[in-house]
Design a binder for these strands. Structure first.
Length: 268
DNA sequence: ACCCAGGAAATTC
DNA sequence: GAATTTCATGGG
């Protein structure tokens, strides 16, 4: 599949910037991964996005997943005018986009992310999918549904080595599966109400809730503050509060997060 | 042996 | 209530 006439999009900046954990770079430079029940590899050639292995009828799905129907050039210009350092961060990775991931996958992935590092998060997610997801093709497994995981106990998760997070995963799965928490209703709730709802899950605090809202429910005004972002805000933006960045604060957050991770020397 | 990792719960003061 | 400790696991 080829999606034509795309600018302001880069596979590495988007798929390997800490918002998703199931994409890996291959020798030829494309990124192989799974979204929904579709396993593909994604590459770029000029202004064409090339999705290998995708069904032609899923074109709209991939355009939406990669958020290619939103004008990031425009948003980036507007954010850049707000602050010189944000302008620099945006210029450093102008091809970042906020994916439209499946809500449960985002929630579960960011539960796993707490007090953890990205390589190990990817390992746990991969073992979770291999153990409890459905096989899509050779060596490719879907992310297990909340319903599937709700039937398990924390002990069942021992092989994936999630540590103390195992019981958080099961608690989240049960509350989502039995409808006590409705992620699609949360999508349109007032933001503080949405946070409060997600935080009914043991193991979900403000940060994991905000990551779920931004990466899973596409609430672009959410601005997750992890250790990197707190450090970045206090040193690079000492007089700015997240609300200042407005309705697209989440995109600003991702520019700043990626820029900070790629420039650790700024914080020594 | 020690420290840290896209935090949050449990305990203590 | 606010500050500190603990949680499970792996890599540097």
């Amino acid at each position: 599949m080829i999606i034509e006439n795309i600018t302001d999009f880069d596979t590495e900046q988007t798929l390997d910037c800490g918002q998703a954990f199931r994409w890996t770079k291959q020798e030829n430079g494309t990124f192989k991964g799974i979204a929904g029940r579709k396993a593909v590899s994604i590459g770029i050639n000029g202004d064409k996005v090339i999705i290998d292995g995708a069904d032609e009828k899923d074109k709209d799905y991939w355009i939406h997943y990669l958020d290619l129907d939103l004008d990031y050039g425009n948003i980036r210009d507007a954010l850049s005018q707000m602050h010189p350092i944000l302008s620099e961060a945006a210029q450093f990775a102008p091809g970042i986009r906020i994916l439209n991931q499946e809500p449960w996958e985002a929630l579960c992935s960011f539960i796993i992310s707490q007090n953890n590092n990205i390589p190990r998060i990817k390992g746990i997610v991969e073992r979770l999918c291999r153990s409890f997801g459905e096989q899509i093709q050779e060596e490719c497994y879907s992310f297990p549904s909340a319903e599937t995981l709700a039937k398990l106990t924390p002990e069942d998760l021992h092989p994936i080595r999630a540590g103390f997070r195992a019981r958080y995963i099961i608690d989240g799965a049960r509350k989502v599966a039995d409808g006590e928490i409705d992620l699609e209703k949360i999508r349109t709730m007032e933001i503080n109400e949405a946070r409060k709802e997600l935080m009914k899950i043991t193991g979900v605090g403000i940060k994991v809730a905000d990551c779920t809202l931004l990466y899973g429910l596409h609430r672009l005004d959410c601005f997750p503050l992890d250790v990197w972002m707190k450090r970045a805000m206090s040193t690079l933006f000492p007089d700015v509060s997240p609300e200042y960045f407005g309705e697209y604060a989440g995109i600003a957050q991702q520019y700043i997060f990626h820029y900070s991770r790629m420039h650790p020397e700024l914080f020594e």
